[in-house]
Computed example of a mutant assay.
Amino acid sequence: MSSLIEAADLAAALDGSSPPLVLDVTWQLGGPPGIDSYRVAHVPGARFVDLATELSGPHTPTGTGGRHPMPEPGAFGAAMRRLGIAAATDVVVYDAGQSVAAARAWWLLRYFGHDRVRVLDGGFAAWTAEHLPVTDVVPEPAEPGTFVPRPGEMSRLDAQEAAAFVAAGGVLLDARAGERFRGESEPIDAKAGHIPGAVSAPATEYTHADGRFREPAELKEYFAARGAVPGARVAAYCGSGATAAHEVLALSLAGIPAGLYAGSWSDWITDPRRPVATGE
Rank of each mutant, 00 (worst) to 15 (best):
E280R: 12
E184I: 09
A190I: 06
L219Q: 08
T60G: 13
Q160D: 15
G57I: 02
L219H: 08
G170R: 06
F181G: 06
I5K: 02
P71H: 12
L260D: 00
V49H: 01
P133K: 10
A78R: 13
H114K: 03
R150Y: 00
G84P: 07
A103E: 03
L157V: 09
A125R: 14
G259K: 01
L253T: 03
G239A: 11
A86H: 14
A167R: 15
W27R: 05
G84Q: 02
S252Y: 01
T26M: 04
A11D: 13
L109I: 05
R180Q: 13
P44E: 10
M1Q: 14
G183D: 04
L108H: 01
E72P: 01
S200H: 14
T60M: 10
M1S: 15
E280L: 11
R67Y: 04
K220V: 15
V234S: 02
S56W: 07
G74I: 08
R81W: 02
R233I: 01
F181I: 04
Y38T: 01
S3K: 13
S2M: 13
A177M: 14
L173R: 06
G169L: 10
G45W: 11
Y206M: 02
P20Y: 10
V92I: 12
V229W: 00
A11F: 13
L83H: 13
A163R: 14
V25E: 01
P144T: 11
A142E: 09
L109Q: 02
A277Y: 12
L83G: 08
V229S: 11
M70N: 01
D267Y: 07
L14C: 14
M70A: 14
A242R: 00
G241S: 06
W107Q: 00
G193M: 02
A78E: 15
V40R: 14
A224S: 13
G170F: 05
Y94W: 03
A164F: 04
D174S: 09
G145I: 03
L108P: 04
D189N: 12
V234H: 03
F124I: 06
T204C: 11
A224Y: 11
P257R: 10
L260H: 10
A87T: 14
L132F: 08
C238T: 06
E221K: 15
V138R: 05
R150W: 00
P32R: 10
